[in-house]
């Protein structure tokens, strides 16, 4: 039987291990690539933008799935789908659950995983804003990486070859909200702002906007530390020169949206 329609992807081997150790061993091969839910990677492969020799599915590793919490922390397994987070984190961290429930569409949320999203670090993805805005810790098979150290620019992260996100640990804030201005065709964020108020201070993370990927808006954080109200952001703006521009929005438009979405996030924080 020929599968002509699949010729669009280069050939690759497929493995589906059931433990992290097996996955790490399988990824040791040159040009092996980890596969989360595949909602970005499979379309990428169809466009022949990548040519892995082997895909190692992480979705069969039960130890990397699920949401657990306690002592002000919420831990999410790296292979946990957006739909599961939207449901299981709703009580413990409502802003995070709401963010997960707005990614893509229902069918995408049933496959896509938090680990896959963070490993890919698309500059318009939602989860990077939550991780950076929460000061989360990225847990891998080798080490723990703070979100501030993890994101390194467009599609760039601190992950090394063969390193797997096994879990993400979120400190639960006093209140938080994520406000996304939808790019209506892709459902990615044209601009998204995650604002979270912790005892130690406010964190504001912006996705979809900067040419450098997700970033913290330090000036807004300082203003909100003093006064956690939308009005505290009056007069503040990000540098339009560092914003992305495409047919959906200019640099100036995105810079303006950052301020608008940040105010909305503060107003909606609960």
């Amino acid at each position: 039987m020929l599968f002509g329609k699949d010729d669009k992807m280069y050939e690759f081997e497929f493995e589906k291990p059931s433990t992290v150790a097996e996955a790490v061993a399988a990824l040791a091969d040159e040009d092996a690539q980890a596969l989360g839910g595949g909602q970005t990677l499979i379309p990428t492969l169809k466009q022949r933008l990548a040519m892995p020799s082997k895909l190692v599915s992480l979705t069969g590793i039960d130890g990397m799935k699920g949401v657990s919490g306690g002592d002000g922390m919420l831990s999410i397994g790296g292979a946990t789908t957006h739909a599961e987070v939207a449901e299981a984190a709703a009580d413990a961290y409502p802003a995070l659950a709401a963010l997960a429930g707005q990614i893509g569409d229902p069918a995408v949320r049933n496959r896509g995983t938090i680990g896959g999203s963070l490993a890919n670090n698309d500059p318009a993805a939602c989860y990077p804003a939550a991780a950076l805005g929460s000061g989360a810790t990225i847990m891998t098979n080798r080490r723990e990486i703070t979100a501030d150290d993890y994101f390194r620019g467009l599609f760039e992260t601190a992950l090394e070859d063969g390193e797997i996100i096994t879990a993400v640990r979120f400190p639960v804030p006093q209140k938080a909200s994520y406000q996304k201005f939808l790019q209506p065709a892709s459902r990615f964020a044209l601009v998204g702002v995650f604002a979270a108020k912790y005892a130690a201070g406010v964190r504001v993370a912006v996705t979809g906007a900067s040419e450098e990927g997700v970033f913290r808006w330090n000036e807004a954080e300082a203003a909100l530390d003093a006064d956690f109200t939308p009005e505290a952001l009056d007069g503040l703006s990000v540098d339009a020169g560092s914003m992305m521009a495409d047919l959906h929005g200019s640099k100036a438009y995105r810079a303006h949206l950052v301020g608008v979405m940040a105010k909305r996030a503060v107003a909606a924080a609960a």
Binding site: L35, Q39, I42, P43, K46, S57, V108, R111, S186
Partner: peptide, 27 residues
């Protein structure tokens, strides 16, 4: 579309709606 956007290929896998064009058969 075969680009994960149109949803014409939605099926249920273990009770959940997924896009069959964006999932490997072996999965």
């Amino acid at each position: 579309c075969d680009t994960s956007q149109c949803g014409a290929c939605v099926v249920h896998v273990d009770g959940q709606a997924v896009k069959a064009c964006t999932m490997l058969a072996l999965e």
